[in-house]
């Protein structure tokens, strides 16, 4: 009985496992392997074990103009820092701007609530690239097009629904009688918010952060369209290496670094806050 059940479970999990292996694990291995390879003059990948792509990413050069043996170029490091900075800024802004809205929707009467959620979701029906193009005209009117601020605006606009929805979910789950209990025990609205609402909605903020930070780290469309060429992110770098420079080995190395950095930030973050579930009951 028990055995057949576990066999059944394995069978049921098989399609998903195959999917994960075929479309996630295998490409991941390929990228890591490629990142250690070298590109021959024709643009083909030679599979070796060379760290030269990583050395290049770190900015250490051997063919320096002034005759020195090694010199340092911070180009790629600046791109990496810019990507992390943008991701952090976007996450922070979506929290700050999205929280009041999520709170408002969660406390609205049930019928209005659905309407408001609907309004938040409507923009997602239109293709993302088209909506970013719409921003070109708006930003140009404010003389902001092709600036870092333009990219930030575009990012926040793009990702704020993914922050609002999980925050709304955890705010909406808070039993209203808890607000009354807090008031009953002498807490005014501000203290109720700080002692009850905020801690109980933290799981939503954490989940939203994971949903926003990770994709922003790898994005390249918004920066491409709204930032111009001078605002390059890791995503743009990778895209350029694969499509324009035709150097998949360097592109792969950049991808590995991107994944590594995202992973590190997320590990630090989830160590502190968990994954956005059951934070309340540790």
């Amino acid at each position: 009985m028990r055995e057949s059940k576990s066999v059944q479970g394995t069978l049921l999990a098989t399609p998903a496992m195959l999917w994960m292996i075929g479309l996630l694990i295998v490409p991941l291995i390929l990228i890591v392997v490629t990142s250690f390879g070298q590109r021959d003059p024709d643009g083909n990948v030679i599979y070796t074990f060379s760290l030269h792509n990583y050395i290049r990413l770190a900015g250490i050069k051997t063919n320096c103009g002034d005759g020195a043996a090694v010199c340092f170029d911070s180009l790629y490091l600046r791109i990496l820092v810019r990507s992390v900075g943008l991701a952090l800024a976007t996450t922070l802004l979506t929290i700050v701007l999205g929280y009041p809205l999520a709170y408002y929707v969660a406390r609205a009467p049930a019928r209005r609530r659905n309407m408001l959620l609907f309004l938040i979701l409507i923009p997602l029906w239109t293709n993302f690239v088209i909506r970013v193009y719409a921003w070109i005209r708006i930003l140009r009117a404010f003389d902001l097009l092709y600036t870092p601020q333009a990219v930030l605006v575009g990012m926040v606009y793009e990702f704020i629904p993914f922050m609002i929805l999980p925050m709304y979910t955890s705010l909406e789950k808070i039993d209203p009688s808890l607000y009354e209990a807090a008031a009953d025990l002498g807490a005014n609205s501000l203290r109720t918010f700080l002692k009850v609402t905020l801690p109980l909605s933290l799981p939503g903020v954490v989940a939203g952060t994971l949903l926003v930070f990770v994709p922003v780290m790898g994005t390249f469309v918004v920066s491409d369209i709204l930032g111009g060429k001078q605002f390059e992110l890791v995503g743009n770098l990778i895209q350029g290496q694969f499509l324009d420079a035709r150097d998949p080995t360097f592109g792969s190395a950049a991808s590995v670094i991107l994944m590594g950095m995202t992973l590190i930030v997320m590990i630090i973050y989830t160590r502190k806050f968990g994954f956005g579930e059951e934070v309340a009951i540790t």
Partner: peptide, 8 residues
Amino acid sequence: QSYALFPH
């Protein structure tokens, strides 16, 4: 009636 204890 629901006790309304703070779960966190």
